[in-house]
């Protein structure tokens, strides 16, 4: 393989994987011994190898979410050895490589655990709760007319940078998975502050934060205890600052909004 490390020795591993037939049935951890895993593989490639084996043996392959496999889509998940997206900081599971594990390791792989993220099958969870929070206000509905000239609307660089940092959230749900209360506040705050900082988003800032926070509660996520676990596990480094910004938005919206509902 081009670019592979010739000194990397293949590893033998023991996997403990959560298997669950569907939403209704109870699941359990199933042990799979694996031999000759290359340290150059990504974690998902390692699972592909296992699934290949399972197919050949006539067993049901393990269902897991994945899409771009380059760390930008937010589709992959997996709670690996007690950590969201595995032991490395600032990385998605698809960008986690087997060289971060050792020969002989036992690796536990579980789905995100949250009432708001029910398990569909095996390691696949339903994250549509995030979509519904977005639909509650994570957009701009004002008619902005034709395309304005570049730089016609002045936005200070520091604000533009902060909004862009918040916008890097890929909605993977690691924050919920890592939080002891399964709180979605880091995700929601990234979506709220990303828009409320920019001129186009400011017109709807009050209703946005009110509706998105209300939807977050309806979906059954827990509350925030400020442990900071979410930001520590976030693969794209969304900052806790966003949560505090959303709280200011929320308090000022509740104090001044015309929306009495």
């Amino acid at each position: 393989m081009a670019g592979s490390n010739p000194n990397a020795k293949p590893m033998d591993l023991t996997l403990k994987v959560w298997r669950q037939k569907n939403r209704e049935t109870a699941g359990q951890l199933v042990t799979y011994p694996m031999k000759g895993i290359s340290p150059d593989m990504s974690f998902l490639e390692m699972l592909d190898v296992l699934n290949d084996d399972l197919s050949v043996r006539g067993e049901e392959p393990i269902a897991f979410d994945h899409d771009c496999r380059e760390g930008i889509c937010g589709m992959c998940s997996l709670f690996i050895n007690g950590r969201a997206h595995g032991p490395e900081r600032g990385t998605t599971t698809c960008q986690l490589h087997m060289r971060h594990f050792n020969d002989g390791d036992t690796i536990t792989i579980e789905p995100w655990r949250a009432a708001a993220f029910p398990v569909h099958k095996d390691l696949v969870v339903d994250r549509s709760a995030f979509d519904r929070i977005q639909q509650a206000g994570g957009y701009i509905s004002v008619n902005t007319g034709g395309v304005p000239d570049a730089n016609e609307i002045p936005i200070p660089k520091i604000i533009a940078d902060k909004a862009f940092d918040a916008a890097t959230c890929i909605g993977c749900g690691a924050c919920v998975a890592a939080c002891k209360n399964a709180s979605a506040i880091l995700f929601v705050s990234a979506k709220v502050s990303q828009m409320s900082m920019l001129p186009q988003g400011k017109t709807e800032r009050k209703t946005r934060v009110e509706n998105m926070v209300a939807q977050m509660d309806i979906e059954g996520f827990g509350s925030c205890t400020n442990t900071g676990a979410c930001a520590a596990e976030c693969p794209v480094g969304i900052s806790l600052e966003n949560i505090n910004m959303m709280r200011r938005e929320f308090i000022s919206a509740k104090a001044t909004s015309e929306n009495l509902a």
Partner: peptide, 17 residues
């Protein structure tokens, strides 16, 4: 209630106090 089923293997000490 937000997490009815917990993790079999969890290491919160690596991300929070």
């Amino acid at each position: 209630a937000a997490r009815p089923i917990g993790y079999a293997n969890n290491h919160p000490e690596q991300n929070s106090t």
